[in-house]
Design a protein around this nucleic acid. Structure first.
Lengths: 373, 373
DNA sequence: GCGATTGCGGTAAGCGTTTGCTTCTTCGGT
DNA sequence: ACCGAAGAAGCAAACGCTTACCGCAATCGC
């Protein structure tokens, strides 16, 4: 049972929201000073076990919850982490958010999420709000930060993690995604199947990460000695709509590719959709490869072959990097670059190109073949 | 240019993170008291315009950002809103989050997001953390709150919004989704096409909202005089995996339905996937209807007919309800129930049942007339 | 047995704001 | 010319907590 709680200075029990119980209420009830309560709560070993028991009992009885704001104010650490993503509605990011949040929570942090929607004004205001909230650090996982914004932020000394930021930025943690590896695997997978005409739908090229992905593709193609004509390189927006539009452009042009690699899965899903509207079929007539390996990819029709970038490792590295920057004696405090690997996941949206020799191995689903309207 | 800032009490410029400039620094630089700075910042009209100008200049020069934590501590309002969702990786929720966040930000609030993953222990810990962070209010948009948790929360007097919570809970805002309307439209759409054997894949039935949806379906069917046999009612999990499993059960059973309504879009996508693995085709052999109208729905193959529940209005109502609870003189402070409407969106996953009279409209070659089943 | 040491708990000074109250200035009214 | 009112800025308390510091009592050494 909860006795009436009140004292001279803090009439919280009368004036404010009930449920807003302060450390004073606990102290009074346990018959100790607030300092002792604080020490008990923080499990400081110098407090007498008997007293600690009394304090915990009182805490339980009055339903005390330490006020994080006050704590943050005095300790200087808010245990808040900022997470900035490009677009929360792109399914890749919720998966990332989820992982990030789980990890953060496990370490006693809360997460403030913001999505920039590729709007730099929005990003800036978001960043300002995060700073006002005194976040302990920010992970900027947008795959498309404007370089000048980065510079601006770096000026404040502040734990900051970027993905794919350029090199040479001091004092910043960078998640270095090894696009080359996964994309090379994708290209080689297609080449091994016999494809020679492989198109690429990129993301928005004013952003760094899409550029890097495209270059990785071109390099991988060059490695196997295939020239990519300009009309097989189209720009998308990393959205389904962009994928549809880009694929349509590809379909209109004369020299139809037999395979299309996409800069992310949403683009690939858009491409599938655009192809679905034509008489062509995936993978018999045209193969499609995505990038990201979002959960949805395996449920596409057909299930999407894609390059996996593990958001689990992305999130883990981000958290680790932030903690290294925040917590004074973190083991990896010196590390500034965190490698993230990528790899191909073969599903059913890729097959031999049409008219190639071993066409029977095109794994047609067991169903009556009809041209789709 | 930024002159050296320092004073007796707060050596922040030396001790702490640079960039952590306090109101004192501004006051000193502008040659006024901190009270005046505070008033200028908060645009209190009693401050002399000339002084205000000086203050703003100083703010700009030293790069001052008011500390939200301190503000919250004294004002009692954190301008933080909690948003609890079931599962951030279900695409419906990011869309909701996005809307919610936009609206909240526009009103000067920040959002702390948490996903419960249908785990009540997790929910409870989440709620506790939100309370410790002193959020001004919480929107619980999980479509599956355990009733006892609700009761527990209600005890603390606290701005709280639920979706589909039971009636008779005093002092709580409820978003009342009118499932009946949209689902009836869906059923009637199918019936108008000629379907009589309509199955329903529900969500997890231990949750309230899935139960309500299922009942709405059954009532709509009863209204048009069709009995739904038990084997046409299967339980899913509101995930793609659940949709696949449920659809497979439906396909195994003897009496194949000609149409399937699903409790949400992810379930429907799973169902499409399961059907894809058979010789059957959507919509020629079987029609599928979803619920939610997530963005992805229109990009499915074929584009999904679904019942739209606007997450825009859901978010708007939630914010409005919370503000009504938080802000003392909000116009709608009395309103406790907020209606949300639903409606059918017809796309291409629904068509006439196989063998029905106007088969030529099924986008297939015309067939000889057959008696209806 | 007495002074020094140790162990614990309380007191109070902040953390960065807001805001009630006080003080100072200025101006109008008589 | 004097008094009072009004307006504007400053002082200081408070928000809920942590922690440096201090004081008290008990213990130890000799």
């Amino acid at each position: 049972m909860i006795a009436s709680v009140s004292h001279s200075r803090n009439q919280s029990s009368e004036r404010k929201r009930p449920g807003s119980v302060s450390i004073r209420d606990v102290a009074q009830r346990a018959g100790v000073s607030i300092a002792t309560v604080s020490r008990a709560v923080n499990r400081i070993p110098t407090v007498d076990p008997e007293l600690a028991r009394r304090v915990w009992k009182a805490i339980d009885e009055v339903g005390y919850l330490p006020n994080t704001q006050a704590r943050a104010l005095v300790s200087g650490r808010s245990h808040l982490l900022g997470l900035i993503v490009s677009e929360i509605t792109n399914p890749f990011f919720p998966e990332l958010v989820q992982e990030f949040e789980n990890l953060a929570t496990a370490q006693g942090y809360e997460v403030l999420i913001g999505s920039t929607n590729y709007d730099s004004a929005r990003t800036e205001s978001l960043m300002r709000r995060l700073l006002q909230r005194n976040v302990d650090g920010v992970a900027v996982m947008t795959f498309g930060v404007e370089e000048d914004l980065v510079k601006k932020l770096v000026e404040r000394e502040f734990p900051l993690v970027f993905v794919d930021a350029g090199p040479g930025l001091p004092n910043i943690h960078v998640l270095k995604v090894d696009y080359a590896e996964g994309i090379r695997q994708g290209v080689q997978h297609l080449a091994a199947l016999g494809h020679r005409k492989i198109a690429f739908i990129s993301g928005p090229l004013e952003q760094r990460s899409p550029r890097v992905r495209r270059e990785a593709f071109l390099r991988a193609m060059t490695e196997i000695g295939i020239h990519v004509p300009a009309e097989h390189l189209v720009e998308g927006t990393h959205t389904m709509e962009g994928g549809i539009a880009a694929m349509e452009r590809l379909l209109e042009r004369g020299d139809l590719p037999t395979a299309v690699m996409c800069s992310n899965d949403m683009t690939a899903i858009g491409a599938l959709h655009a192809i679905y509207r034509t008489p062509l079929k995936v993978p018999q007539d045209i193969s499609v490869v995505g990038f990201d390996d979002i959960h949805l990819a395996q449920f596409m029709l057909p299930p999407l072959t894609t390059v996996q970038m593990s958001c689990k490792s992305l999130a883990a590295a981000a958290i680790e990097a932030l903690r290294a920057g925040i917590e004074p004696d973190h083991p990896k405090a010196k590390q500034k670059e965190w490698p993230i690997s990528t790899q191909i996941v073969v599903r059913q949206s890729t097959a031999f190109p049409p008219g190639s020799l071993p066409a029977r191995m095109n794994k047609e689903p067991a169903r009556p073949t009809k041209p789709r309207a």
